[in-house]
């Protein structure tokens, strides 16, 4: 290891931390409206496929795409990818997600699941004040 290496590694760590800070801010503000119902927006190839409300009861959602099929399972106010016939299976490793802003991505099938809260207006209030 040379000094240049240490400088580069430090730069990467600083850049990563700079990315972390807005993430923390989003998470803190989302804890305030924790009681809101969450929805999951499922998009396939950029087009909205379905919006589901995350409930405690189990729901199975099958997402057929041109490239393959993904199966999502809603339970305990969260959502999880439980089956996919994509080659890399990265989407399964996202696990169970239940926080605002969380995502599940299946890149080979172009499937994107995004978690949002129902009352979007409330969080955007600050921006509208002026």
């Amino acid at each position: 290891m040379k000094r240049g290496d240490v400088v580069l590694i430090c730069l990467v760590i600083v850049a990563a931390l700079a990315f972390f800070i807005p993430k923390w801010l989003i998470q803190n503000s989302s804890e305030n409206n924790h009681n809101n119902t969450m929805t999951a927006e499922i998009t396939v190839d950029g087009k909205l496929f379905k919006t589901v409300t995350l409930t405690e009861e189990e729901q199975m959602i099958t997402v057929p795409t041109d490239h393959g099929t993904n199966i999502l399972k809603v339970h305990n106010y969260g959502i999880e990818m439980i089956e996919a016939d994509c080659p890399d299976q990265v989407c399964l490793s996202f696990g169970f997600v239940n926080r605002k802003g969380d995502t599940i991505v299946c890149l080979p099938h172009r499937v994107l699941v995004e978690l949002k809260t129902d009352q979007a207006e409330e969080s955007e209030l600050d921006a509208v004040v002026s």
């Binding site: 040379k2 290496d5 580069l8």
Partner: peptide
């Protein structure tokens, strides 16, 4: 730079 920095 050494190989370590480059591979990082």
């Amino acid at each position: 730079l050494s190989l370590i920095g480059i591979s990082v």
